[in-house]
């Protein structure tokens, strides 16, 4: 599976594991995930709710909750093994100018009594010790970069619309000049027009600043707005990974195929269908392929017995499905 990894990778994740302790048992949120992201590309991380997308992102930027049961694997960023860094080194080398993240649902996490400018400037003040006045100026620059007026810095969060808040969050993530920006469902709370506006902004920033994104969403249509490659997660594992131009027209994992079939197309006439059964239990996932109880192509005695590795479908297109075994 080594040749999944392009040599020019900015980030390369291997066998990443993140488990949580709960009263019911161990939640295997991320259970051995590998992928990489090239300089300047966008990798979309898609999958249904609970498949482990956010957990993967939190594992990469090491923002872990208290109930971690296991955290291991390899995360190489700019040729540096992040797992070997202590927290202080991690803060200096990754949080500043390395990897930034726009968190899922963060629109509601603004401090209501603090001016937007200071909140956008906070990563500079906290991580770099930049003086407040200087950081505030930088915040105004960042707000301008995301298409807001500089004066928005003086406003309070409640004076901003949803779309403006989302832009401010992107400004906050960009203020440290990251090389990699992780966007976790950055538009899911927004209206269609505002969503399209934010997507346009992300496209523009990608082009003008040469940004590299990991774009997390459960929406395949939205993913196609940015993705050069798509990684499909299912039950804490990678189901499929491939270039958008191949994965959308010719998905190789049955889950991806059925997921695409569940999307109602606006510009084609094709009745959407649903995937029978329910998502896997993260504590006791099905043995073998985690999708096998729902898969129409299941091979008895194989899929329900052993876990399929990632098989090469062609070129850079991979899928963890026994149907690809001969290749």
């Amino acid at each position: 599976m080594d040749d999944i990894e392009p040599n020019d990778a900015l980030l390369s994740v291997k066998n990443l594991v993140l488990h949580f302790t709960t009263s019911r048992g161990i939640v295997r949120a991320v259970d051995g995930v590998s992928f990489s992201v090239r300089h300047g590309e966008t990798l979309a991380l898609v999958g249904e709710s609970g498949s482990g997308k956010s957990s993967t992102a939190l594992a990469i930027i090491r923002l872990l909750p208290r109930n971690v049961a296991a955290y291991r694997g390899s995360i190489i960023f700019e040729k540096m093994e992040l797992m070997n860094l202590d927290d202080e080194e991690f803060r200096k080398r990754v949080r500043v100018g390395g990897i930034s993240m726009v968190f899922q649902g963060a629109m509601n996490s603004f401090n209501p009594v603090l001016r937007v400018g200071f909140q956008v400037a906070e990563p500079l003040i906290v991580n770099l010790g930049v003086p407040r006045e200087e950081a505030y100026k930088k915040a105004e620059d960042a707000l301008e970069l995301v298409g807001l007026e500089r004066s928005v810095a003086q406003r309070y969060p409640f004076e901003l619309s949803g779309g403006m808040k989302q832009r401010a969050l992107i400004a906050m993530a960009l203020i440290t000049n990251p090389k990699l920006l992780i966007l976790d469902e950055p538009t899911s709370a927004l209206d269609v027009m505002t969503q399209a506006n934010v997507m346009n902004l992300l496209k523009k920033l990608k082009k003008e600043l040469g940004l590299t994104y990991i774009f997390i969403t459960h929406d395949l249509a939205l993913a196609s707005e940015l993705a050069d490659r798509v990684a499909v997660m299912y039950g804490g594992l990678m189901a499929e990974l491939g270039p958008s131009d191949e994965l959308y027209p010719k998905p190789r994992h049955p889950y991806t195929e059925l997921l695409i079939n569940s999307v109602p197309f606006l510009r084609q006439d094709k009745e959407p269908t649903f995937i029978r059964g329910s998502p896997p239990d993260p504590i006791e996932p099905p043995i073998g392929c985690r999708f096998h109880p729902r898969c129409p192509y299941v091979i008895k005695g194989k899929c329900d017995v052993s876990t399929p590795p990632m098989f090469k479908a062609d070129g850079e297109h991979w899928a963890a499905c026994w149907l690809l075994e001969e290749k």
Partner: peptide
């Protein structure tokens, strides 16, 4: 305008800006 704002799953979307009033 509403229709234009909504993407279908289509990899060519990434090369174009969406039209928004």
């Amino acid at each position: 305008a509403l229709i234009d704002a909504i993407p279908d799953p289509d990899p060519s979307n990434r090369f174009v800006m969406r039209k928004i009033p």
